[in-house]
Amino acid sequence: MAKAEKTQDEKARQRTVLKASEMDPKFKYEISKLPGAEEVMLCFQCGTCTADCPISRFDDFYRPRRLIRMTQLGLKDRLLSNDVIWLCSTCFTCIDHCPQGVGIASIVRALRNLTVKRGHMPAGYKEQVSNILKTGYAYVISDMRLRKRKEKGLPALPKTNLKSVAKLFNATGFSKTLEKVKT
């Protein structure tokens, strides 16, 4: 029952009429300045990307074509508050197949980067990023594993210069962004 209601809700949400006031006509220009997203305006909505996207098979809302259209229409708040943008698995099939040369996955990445700037970042990413700052690696590799490497005759793992990593995070401004992040 609850499930049926949810599907109804979902359908209603998708039918919702768009209000002009929700659209930010400048958004597409903002996006098109970001690396890999330059061709966002060239999308003519053929749907090839969605047809070939492995994620779209398993999620009712995730459709690359839809995300590109929403970007063109300037539905900025809807996009940047929607967890669905984190579902792209960056397989790059869409980029290879798009007849217009649109960098779909790069546009999704641009949307994610903007969401992070607003202070939202999925916990999994937050953890990996803090691991990189702490160890240089995306994971914390335990002492037990380091010992096992030795037993197996593998060379010791190199140690990263963590000061350098921290300096780079500061240089790109990402350290500042991280302070704002609430997940």
Partner: peptide
């Protein structure tokens, strides 16, 4: 750098 692309392309 792979895990940082989604959160900060420049990083």
């Amino acid at each position: 750098g792979f895990p940082t692309d989604p959160v900060s392309h420049d990083t």
